[in-house]
Amino acid sequence: MVFASFRRYLSMRHQSSKVQDLYDHCKTVFSPSGMPPPSSQPLLKLSSILDTIKPADVGLKEEAADDDRGLGFFGANQLNRVARWAKPITYVDIHESDSFTMCIFCFPTSSVIPLHDHPEMTVFSKLLYGSLHVKAYDWVEPPCIVESKGPGHSQVRLAKLAVDKVLNAPCETSVLYPKHGGNLHCFTAVTACAVLDILAPPYKEYEGRKCTYYHDYPYSTFSAGNGPVCVGEEDEYAWLAEIEQPSDLYMNTGVYAGPTIQL
């Protein structure tokens, strides 16, 4: 009995060290006034720490890949469509400060976080379990903006595709930067999955870091005049139009069940 208790203590200590190491490193690297440049050693180390983290390290258990809700149009029973969409994404807050946010998103199958941006932010995303489709863009610079012909005659801005692939756990940590790496992205759960995110600095509307949502249109939808797109590369570009936060985007607030972090 004593030996079993000691093993549980060692296991908890091991789990705690991973999350604590992650927090300690983030606290050292990030500050409200700035952060290291991309590809610097501190950021590479942060990715390497995230690469080692598993669901149990943050208090999660893997969900069944064929969970019975959130399946949307992939479900076979059309009459049960409403019930299948009913399960929302769960947001779990681990830590938030003026410098960075540590959080987890738990997705039921086919759930979506629509296309959105991370203004002046760097984001590390670690897929903990399951499969996730990521589609991401970066703005074309200098900005290429045209007036749309749709309702309201809103503007659309040209963006270049940076990522369009399915991630399957276990896999390396993904990183996006303010100007490259796919700062505008959309997540679609292929199976039930969970993502551990580090956002630095965090969203703060009064500091100009407001989350904006977008709809992407194929390049052929609008004319760019003498725009930067080369013939044969049209599929690599899209026009993005700002939209209101989708009314069907709803998230539950979950409770962090992992090891306590010593601040």
Rank of each mutant, 00 (worst) to 15 (best):
M1S: 13
S17Q: 13
S17T: 12
Q20V: 12
Q20N: 14
C26S: 10
K27H: 14
V29R: 05
F30S: 09
F30H: 10
S33V: 12
S40E: 07
Q41D: 15
K45P: 00
S48G: 05
L50T: 03
I53V: 09
K54W: 02
V58E: 03
E63D: 14
D66G: 09
D66F: 11
L71Y: 09
N77T: 07
L79G: 11
W85C: 15
D93I: 06
H95G: 04
S97P: 04
C106Q: 11
P108L: 09
S110K: 12
I113C: 12
H118G: 05
P119Y: 04
M121K: 04
T122R: 06
V123A: 09
K126A: 09
L127Y: 08
Y137C: 03
D138R: 06
D138K: 07
G150C: 12
Q155A: 08
V156L: 06
A159G: 07
V163M: 02
V166A: 10
L167V: 11
P178K: 06
H180P: 00
L184D: 00
F187H: 07
A192H: 01
L196T: 00
I198H: 02
Y213W: 14
Y217T: 06
A224P: 03
A224E: 14
C230T: 08
G232N: 11
Y237A: 05
A238E: 00
L240V: 06
E242V: 11
E242L: 03
Q245F: 00
S247Y: 12
L249R: 02
Y250N: 10
M251E: 10
M251G: 00
V255I: 14
V255R: 08
G258P: 07
Q262K: 15
